[in-house]
Simulated scan of single mutants.
Amino acid sequence: MNVLAVGAHFDDIELGCGGALAKHVASGDNVCAYVATLSGFTNPQHKVIRSNETAFCEGQKAMKILGVELICGDFKTLELEFNEELNQELIKIVEEKKIDKVYTHWMGDIHHDHQAVAKSSMHSCRHVPNMLMYRSNWYHSTLDFKGNFYIDITDFWDKKEKALLSHRSELQRTAYKWIDFFKNEAENAGQRIGVKYAECYEVVKWLEK
């Protein structure tokens, strides 16, 4: 199976579906991850919080831990749009890699860049038979995340956590709260389906053969 994970920034994919990707790799699937932006950003006072170089180095390390091929876009952080330029990049990957399954951002995510990636994934991956949407933050939306698909990541939580810890600059910014939050999410999802840790997704489409 050829699997593609799509994210707006370095760390989104690891947060949303890192366990599933590690599981795919362990099963022998071909897995690649496309990160659309350079992922560096500054705060409103124009202080650099994470440079593009730091984001890339941390993301590269994380993907290496997961065993995933990294494909980098060069869009600017917070300036990502649902347009033909982004669509063409995704279509090219889908066609060249002969993608069978896509993991992407949830359409209801309030983050501007996340929304753009979700919309582009819907458009550009419309011929891919399997698509799941993940959550990669903790912010509220006016829409409800309809988590209705679970993947047991009990044997892969440690690898997911190790990949997340690669993003030191982002974890320092959030006082390492991402780790506890997503571990709790994985435990809650696992509790609902009778395993220790799970990732929960919203199904866009699923082909059972």
Results as ranks from 00 to 15, higher is better:
109 D>Y: 00
108 G>E: 02
151 I>R: 15
118 A>M: 02
119 K>E: 06
163 A>I: 03
157 W>N: 08
154 T>L: 02
168 R>F: 03
108 G>V: 00
150 Y>H: 08
154 T>P: 03
178 W>P: 12
142 T>I: 10
86 L>T: 09
109 D>L: 00
137 N>Y: 02
163 A>C: 07
105 H>G: 06
150 Y>C: 03
168 R>K: 08
109 D>V: 00
175 A>F: 06
148 N>V: 03
120 S>T: 11
175 A>G: 11
177 K>Q: 15
103 Y>I: 01
163 A>E: 13
130 N>H: 08
150 Y>N: 07
104 T>I: 04
100 D>M: 06
114 H>D: 07
80 L>Y: 08
163 A>D: 13
156 F>S: 12
184 N>E: 13
75 F>G: 14
92 K>F: 05
91 I>H: 10
135 R>I: 05
99 I>H: 12
115 Q>K: 06
78 L>P: 14
151 I>Y: 12
183 K>F: 07
79 E>K: 09
105 H>A: 03
84 E>R: 09
110 I>S: 12
83 N>I: 02
184 N>S: 11
124 S>W: 00
115 Q>G: 03
165 L>F: 08
75 F>W: 14
169 S>E: 10
126 R>Y: 03
171 L>T: 06
185 E>S: 09
113 D>N: 08
146 K>L: 03
105 H>C: 04
177 K>L: 10
115 Q>A: 02
